[in-house]
Design a protein around this nucleic acid. Sequence first.
DNA 1: ACTGGCACTCATGCTTTCCGAGTGCCAAGT
DNA 2: ACTTGGCACTCGGAAAGCATGAGTGCCAGT
Lengths: 341, 341
Amino acid sequence: MPLDDRKLDVLRAIIEDYVASREPVGSKMLVERHHLGVSPATIRNDMAALEEGGYIAQPHTSAGRIPTDKGYRLFVDRLATVKPLSPAERRAIHIFLDGAVDLDDVVTRTVRLLAQLTRQVAVVQYPSLTRSTVRHVELVPLGTSRMLLVLITDTGRVEQRVVELPADVDEAMQADLRARLGHAVAGLDTSAAAAAAAALPELFSPADRQAVAAVIATLIEVLVDKHDERVAVAGAANLARSGQGLDAGLEALLEALEEHVVLLRLLGEATSPSMLTVRIGQENAPSGLPAASVITTGYGPGERALASMGVVGPTHMDYPGTIAAVGAVARYVSQMLTRNN
Amino acid sequence: MPLDDRKLDVLRAIIEDYVASREPVGSKMLVERHHLGVSPATIRNDMAALEEGGYIAQPHTSAGRIPTDKGYRLFVDRLATVKPLSPAERRAIHIFLDGAVDLDDVVTRTVRLLAQLTRQVAVVQYPSLTRSTVRHVELVPLGTSRMLLVLITDTGRVEQRVVELPADVDEAMQADLRARLGHAVAGLDTSAAAAAAAALPELFSPADRQAVAAVIATLIEVLVDKHDERVAVAGAANLARSGQGLDAGLEALLEALEEHVVLLRLLGEATSPSMLTVRIGQENAPSGLPAASVITTGYGPGERALASMGVVGPTHMDYPGTIAAVGAVARYVSQMLTRNN
DNA sequence: ACTGGCACTCATGCTTTCCGAGTGCCAAGT
DNA sequence: ACTTGGCACTCGGAAAGCATGAGTGCCAGT
């Protein structure tokens, strides 16, 4: 039996009510609150059909219906209308994000903003080095047997690492290395830079080669290593607040939030800022998180997505509102990055 | 009425049992489990005395007793015996912490280790700049109107900041500034360095002075700003696990954990690594956290405490075990820092 | 295709009852 | 002066019974 328009309306109404009240919703309440021009009995028939289709379920025989994962899926795919942000929310985005001094600062502010806006747990991935290009490499001598390696990318990201040299190296040599290194990798993307750097030791005298190799090894590590797959999290307290609904999963969720590996899986591949992914309930099981929904999108300068951000919340979340918030924040941050480029 | 030895034994026994079972403990259970050589009736008399003194309380008339904050206080001050770490735990400390590449890495590993060891929420403050000295300042040109400022301290900490210059500056001038700056502040502690840097703009021609001032301003900001009062947190999931006991406070606690200001207050002044502070229950109320206990200690190279670390947990925690773990980790990290100096 | 009516189900909340762990106190024993 | 066994008492919490009412499915009538 195909779902006619009214049945879809009913599904939408059920989801809206359930999200608002967190309680199974019955046919009577439904006709009262939404002006569907029909009687409860009719609604009951529709509900039976929806249940047949697996979009809603009843927790026990004599209770109202609650949406299933499949129901939410249908809702976000076909039923949800965009809910524009309130002016206050738009203002909050500006106030929060303008005045970030630093890429790290942008990430920190963004994650807090998202958590506050959506009242869910927010997750923001740090822009990955992988797709960015090297703007500058700096070598700073720290005494004769140590150097500080600083890598700056076009995304404003700065990575630094202290290199222990296997042998003492004199100043002239350090200056030489710095000049050559800077010349060799500037402007290249990270993988090209790694390749270019790898060839460098050849150019030095055997005496110095070991020290050079140590520096280069560290540089390549920084460039290539997924070390940069860091994430920031905020809003865990929101779980406890709305949490009554997920006590069971709460511990698991909190654990997942500290497991960055799981988070990265949840965030998934960075998509373009204008695309937005919604994964609902069981759809997240492979990522190691049951009974929660995840809304993610990519962000980055232009249409190039460097990293992902998103929120994690109970399946019965306010999808339209959350989607709007995630989208708006991602767009704004992307703009900031584009401007700062 | 003074508390004789047996009454103290009873208090200790009550606390041990309550911590283990989380249930009010009665006189009968007590004589069964601990071989106090007397009858339940006698214990009851002692309990009455302890209750009179405010060390224990009964949740309701016909239930066993539970320790009060005051009881725990007496326990940790006078009754707790040191509980040495198990070999497995000692090994865990080594395995976890050795191989940290980086100061940040040390902090991250430490906080995770502490959380795992104590099964509580662990908090580690990043070593503060305040008491450290400047090892090196580096200026990296990024085009003509931007520079990257990098500050390295003797604790291995690296801070970087991008400075937007108010006017274009040529290369020679940049090199000059870099040389003078490095010369002026190297080896000084942060406040002296800030003072020294403040005098620098004088030395430059009026044309360049604005640009120099911008760089110096940023440097001083980095040096002086409490910006460095960052903290790392781990083990929030442990709250949910043992949490049944604090549902009420759970949300508040989770919120506090994201409020770094509150955490810093909780960690308190950094004490020497060999001193350890225990704050119990209501004693934390002024810091904005009710009904939780906090165990903190300082850490840093030598006896100089750079920062604090500690754990936060329910008042009914295993004090001897937790104290031992916090102490051992702090000592080990301090040693690492001393060695790496 | 919709509606009103009706019998049925069953979670929830309330009251009642019962049980027993635990207490305080007292009088007797060491 | 402590300690102990005995005993009456309290009261939270589990178990059982009962009423309520929201909600359903189905059917016959419009």
